[in-house]
């Protein structure tokens, strides 16, 4: 079997296995699996409102997936997307409430602020990795919690007076779209999906069409060979993290400027950053794969909210399925072994 076909088969089988185990769990616990999946489907695509909400959820998923994948391509594991997202969210909202500008300037400024904040937050692990050879996984995990506490503190003291949320952003900085809203029965779908799609193209362009992208990928394949070929490995590591962080920051802008229109004190993480790891992994770090994986996970997440209402199944079932998909993709060696075995049987 060709390796290309295998590369497509592995994620598909992983998804099927995840759904299969999810079904088994529902059967064992006595829930109605058929009703569960019908509720899931209808919750994601059942009417135009749900469809709009699904698109809204897919938007940050695409960007978070791009962030994780971009770093992955340079051989870096950015678990800090969550933190960069929170920082970007805050920066976007900050610009959104602090200024009064015409929309043509204000909105791009807020979006760019989010990207810049995310990039800056990701610069720290990139720099430490390049300069001190500190493992980026640990640093990004630590920075997630640092981001959480610092943004909460800023929201409480600087952006409000001991309140748990900021004011709503000015209309001129908002991504909200009356057009999409009227189209989808007043869901929270916003213009951000266009930004996400543009970013998918940007990632593809950087990686496939520029010298810089070639260098970034080369560093991901083999640092020593890249160094020997005269590439600046350290600069590429930092650059990769910064671009990754910018995507993550934009994902935060989607929440801050689009979905919510404000920033609130958080007791825990949004989860979007961690789901971004799942998106990137299932999408095999390719732009098209990420879009498809984001569509899958976005619909699962939004559809899940309908499961308790319509079928009485706890929506956490979907979290289990997503975790299992990540797990099966990670252990793809197992799936490849199975494919190999079946392939051999076929030849006999």
């Amino acid at each position: 079997m060709s390796s290309r076909l295998q590369n497509i088969l592995v994620p598909v089988i992983a998804v099927l296995l995840g759904v299969l185990v999810g079904t088994i769990i529902m059967i064992i616990t006595g829930y109605d699996a058929v009703a569960g999946f019908i509720a899931l489907w209808q919750g994601a695509f059942g009417d135009s409102y749900f469809f709009g909400e699904t698109i809204r959820q897919i938007t940050p998923y695409i960007l978070a997936g791009l962030a994780v994948a971009f770093a992955f391509r340079t051989g870096l594991f950015n678990i800090g997307v969550e933190g960069q997202l929170i920082v970007g969210w805050l920066a976007a909202v900050w610009v959104g409430v602090a200024f009064e500008l015409p929309k043509i300037i204000h909105l791009p400024l807020a979006v760019l602020a989010a990207a810049a904040a995310g990039a800056l937050w990701a610069f720290i692990p990139g720099f430490l990795k390049a300069k001190y050879r500190v493992h980026e996984v640990i640093v990004t995990i630590m920075l997630n919690y640092t981001a959480l506490h610092i943004t909460n503190y800023i929201i409480r003291t600087v952006l409000s007076e001991k309140s748990d949320r900021t004011e709503s952003i000015a209309e001129s900085a908002s991504l909200r779209s009356p057009f999409f809203e009227s189209l989808t029965d007043y869901s929270r779908m916003h213009w951000g999906i266009l930004i996400a799609i543009i970013c998918v193209i940007i990632m593809w362009f950087i990686l496939e069409k520029t010298t810089r992208g070639f260098e970034l990928k080369a560093v991901g394949f083999n640092q020593h060979a890249s160094d020997y070929a005269g590439m600046n490995v350290k600069r590429n590591i930092i650059l990769s993290m910064v671009i990754s962080g910018a995507f993550a920051g934009l994902a935060g802008a989607m929440e801050g400027l689009g979905t919510f229109g404000y920033a609130a004190v958080k007791g825990g993480f949004t989860g979007v950053g961690f789901d971004g790891i799942a998106v990137a992994l299932l999408g095999a770090n390719s732009p098209i794969g990420i879009v498809l994986a984001a569509i899958l996970f976005g619909s699962l997440k939004v559809g899940a909210l309908n499961m308790p209402l319509q079928a009485g199944v706890p929506n956490e079932l979907v979290d289990i399925i997503i975790a299992l998909i990540v797990f099966f993709v990670a252990a793809s060696y197992m799936i490849r072994l199975i494919i190999k075995r079946f392939g051999k049987k076929g030849e006999k």
Partner: peptide, 8 residues
């Protein structure tokens, strides 16, 4: 990745 899956 496996650790992340464990957490989720």
């Amino acid at each position: 990745v496996s650790g992340v899956a464990i957490n989720l």
